[in-house]
C-alpha cells in the first residue's frame, strides 16, 4: 500500500515537473524575444518607414502588408472553406467519396508551406500573370488555410448534438432550414474561433509569400491589390539574415519578432474571448 502511494507520488511529481518545463520553455522564448525586442518598440518603430539600410526607422509597411495579406486570404478562404465544410459534413453521405475528400483535406494541410509558395508562384504569379502582388500572395495564403478552415468547420458541426437536427426535421424543417436555424447558431462560436486562430497562423507564414508578394525593401504603402508589399515574417527573415548591416539591424529584427508575436497573441486572446462570449450567448439565448 505504502509502496503504491510512493509510486503515485513520484509519478505525479514527475508529470508536474515535465508540464512546468513545457510552460517554462514557452515563457523563455517569449521572454527572450520580449526583452530584446521591447527596447526598440516605439511609436516611430510602429508607424515609420524603414530607413538607413533597415537599421533605423520602423516597420510600418510590413505591418500594413501583413494586414493586407491576412485580410485578402480571409476573404478568399473563409467563405469557400466554411461552405465546403458545411457541404462535406451535412450533405455528403458516408461513402468512399466523403472519405476521399477528408483524406485529401488532411493531406493538403500536411503539405509544407514552401510548396504552397511554389505552387502559388506558378499559378497566380506566372500563369495567371498577377505578378508579385497582394492578390497572388493572398490567394496562396488562402489555399494554405483552406484545409484548416474546412476541418475547423467540420469539427464545429460535428460537436452539434444530432438530436437537435432530429428535433428540427421532426417539425418538418428542411435540411437547409435545419442547418440555418439550429445547427449553425450552435456551431458558429467554434467556427469563428477556428477562423480567428487560422488568422494567427496566416500572419506568421513566410514561405508562401516569399515568391508571390513579399518585397525585400519597399518603403511605401500599397496602392492596389496588384502591388507588392513588405510583410512581418519576411521582414524578420531579411533583417536576421540578409540585411546590409547585420549588427545594426539585429535589434530591429527582435523588435519585428516581438510585434509579430504580440499580434498573434492578441488575435488568439480575442479568439478565446469571443468564444467564451458566444458560448454564453448561445446557452442563454
Amino acid at each position: 500500500m505504502t509502496q503504491k502511494r510512493l509510486i503515485q507520488k513520484i509519478a505525479f511529481i514527475s508529470f508536474g515537473l515535465i508540464s512546468l518545463m513545457v510552460v517554462g520553455l514557452l515563457f523563455a522564448i517569449l521572454g527572450f524575444i520580449a526583452i530584446r525586442g521591447i527596447k526598440v518598440i516605439s511609436w516611430e518603430f510602429l508607424t515609420a518607414m524603414p530607413d538607413d539600410g533597415m537599421t533605423k526607422g520602423g516597420i510600418f509597411p510590413a505591418i500594413v502588408g501583413t494586414g493586407c495579406l491576412v485580410l485578402g486570404s480571409m476573404i478568399f478562404a473563409f467563405p469557400i472553406g466554411v461552405l465546403s465544410g458545411i457541404y462535406t459534413h451535412e450533405y455528403l453521405k458516408d461513402s468512399w467519396f466523403k472519405r476521399f475528400i477528408r483524406v485529401m483535406t488532411n493531406n493538403l494541410s500536411g503539405i509544407p508551406s514552401i510548396v504552397f509558395g511554389l505552387f502559388g508562384m506558378a499559378l497566380f504569379v506566372n500563369y495567371l500573370e498577377f505578378g508579385d502582388s497582394i492578390i497572388a500572395g493572398s490567394l496562396t495564403l488562402g489555399l494554405l488555410t483552406l484545409p484548416v478552415v474546412i476541418r475547423t468547420t467540420e469539427e464545429a458541426l460535428k460537436s452539434v448534438d444530432d438530436t437537435l437536427r432530429m428535433g428540427s426535421y421532426a417539425l418538418g424543417a428542411t435540411k437547409l432550414q435545419t442547418i440555418r436555424r439550429v445547427v449553425l447558431p450552435v456551431a458558429y462560436p467554434n467556427i469563428i474561433t477556428g477562423l480567428i486562430l487560422s488568422i494567427g497562423r496566416v500572419s506568421g507564414e513566410t514561405a508562401p509569400i516569399l515568391f508571390t508578394v513579399a518585397a525585400y525593401f519597399l518603403p511605401k504603402l500599397p496602392g492596389s491589390i496588384s502591388d507588392q508589399v513588405m510583410a512581418l515574417p519576411y521582414h524578420l527573415y531579411v533583417l536576421a539574415t540578409s540585411g546590409t548591416n547585420m549588427e545594426e539591424s539585429r535589434p530591429m529584427a527582435y523588435g519585428t519578432a516581438f510585434v509579430l508575436i504580440s499580434i498573434i497573441l492578441i488575435i488568439n486572446t480575442i479568439a478565446s474571448l469571443i468564444r467564451r462570449r458566444l458560448h454564453k450567448k448561445v446557452k442563454m439565448n
Binding site: 448534438d161 438530436t163 437537435l164 432530429m166 428535433g167 428540427s168 421532426a170 417539425l171 418538418g172 424543417a173 428542411t174 432550414q177 436555424r181 439550429v182 447558431p185 450552435v186 448561445v282 446557452k283 439565448n285
Partner: peptide
C-alpha cells in the same frame, strides 16, 4: 406528425422560439 424524443432536445433558443419553430419553418 409530432415527435417527442427520449432525451429532451430543446433548441438553444428562447422558450418562445422553441414553440414557434415549427410555424416559422
Amino acid at each position: 406528425i409530432g415527435m417527442v424524443f427520449q432525451k429532451p432536445n430543446p433548441f438553444p433558443k428562447s422558450i418562445y422560439e422553441n414553440v414557434a419553430y415549427g410555424l416559422r419553418v
